[in-house]
């Protein structure tokens, strides 16, 4: 029975295959979170079990140990060509930015140096429209100038599954195959396909407070905090998402530091 997850998945696989046909060399940003892992799983569907390009973790060496362990497990199980790319240190970031935004900028700068090194024409990213207001404005094939910046004021039209896949020398495309998914869709898909995910998403007791806490969204340990939640299984997560009014990125401090901090990050090339 063809259902709505099949439809979402088919759209993503179509986009993945379009990018693979049009863009070479191609890479993928893998943050090791639920979204980019679901995306990676769809890449394997698109290429009959293979991942025919490298996946890159922008490593600030600040990820949580569970995240690194999960990375190593999937590299082995899924036979991944993983680039563990070291991001430049925080001291090199724009000092006028608020501290947490500056810290997040390390990923942006890391991505820039990664692109310079590998000369990727296309880079998959696992962002979704429902995550955040600015991401809602994204295109599936989103052109970036040579320094990675994003001109959200003048984006190419995009309709009928036809994309802008050619661009001047030096620029590249961010490709967003799961832009049309929502958070709950991703978890339902994880559940249906039995895709592995990092255990940090599941609630466990905080030793200090005794409260049940889990991560809605995974990021570096200095920037990301768990939220209170009793959801200790994927079923419970899905149940919880049906009723919650807490936003997904509420545990991400750099989004809300100042009114427009996320906007600044995105315009400079953040995911």
């Amino acid at each position: 029975m063809y259902n709505y997850l099949d439809e979402l998945e088919a759209k993503s696989i179509y986009i993945i295959r379009e990018a693979y046909n049009k863009l070479d060399p191609l890479g993928m940003m893998w943050s090791i979170g639920k979204d980019s892992t679901a995306l990676l799983y769809m890449v394997r569907k698109a290429f009959f079990g293979r991942v025919p390009f490298p996946v890159a973790l922008l490593d600030t060496e600040q990820e949580m140990p569970e995240v690194y362990a999960f990375r190593d497990r999937l590299i082995k199980e899924w036979d991944l060509d993983c680039i563990n790319w070291k991001c430049p240190p925080e001291e090199e970031m724009d000092m006028t930015l608020p501290p947490n935004t500056r810290s997040a900028m390390r990923k942006t700068e890391g991505l820039k140096t990664l692109m310079e090194e590998y000369k990727f024409k296309g880079m998959f990213g696992g962002i979704r429209r429902d995550e955040q207001g600015l991401r809602a404005k994204e295109r599936v094939f989103s052109p970036r100038s040579f320094d990675g910046s994003w001109d959200f004021k003048d984006q190419p039209p995009e309709f009928w599954d036809q994309y802008k896949t050619e661009f001047p020398e030096g620029a590249h495309l961010r490709v967003h195959p799961i832009l049309h998914w929502t958070e709950i869709d991703i978890w339902r898909y994880h559940q249906r396909e039995n895709i592995p995910f990092c255990e940090l998403y599941l609630a466990r007791e905080d030793k200090e407070t005794g409260k049940m806490m889990r991560y809605r969204s995974l990021g570096e340990k200095n920037l990301t905090f768990p939220v209170e939640s009793p959801a200790d299984s994927i079923e419970a997560i899905i149940e919880e998402l049906g009723v919650t009014e807490v936003s997904e990125r509420s545990g991400r401090s750099m989004d809300t530091e100042t009114e427009d901090s996320f906007e600044k990050l995105r315009a400079r090339g953040y995911m």
Partner: peptide, 18 residues
């Protein structure tokens, strides 16, 4: 308020609201 788009200049693209 909902879109966090205080700056008029950026209110020009397709946005999605649930």
């Amino acid at each position: 308020a909902f879109q966090a788009e205080r700056d008029q200049a950026i209110t020009i693209d397709t946005t999605q609201i649930w």
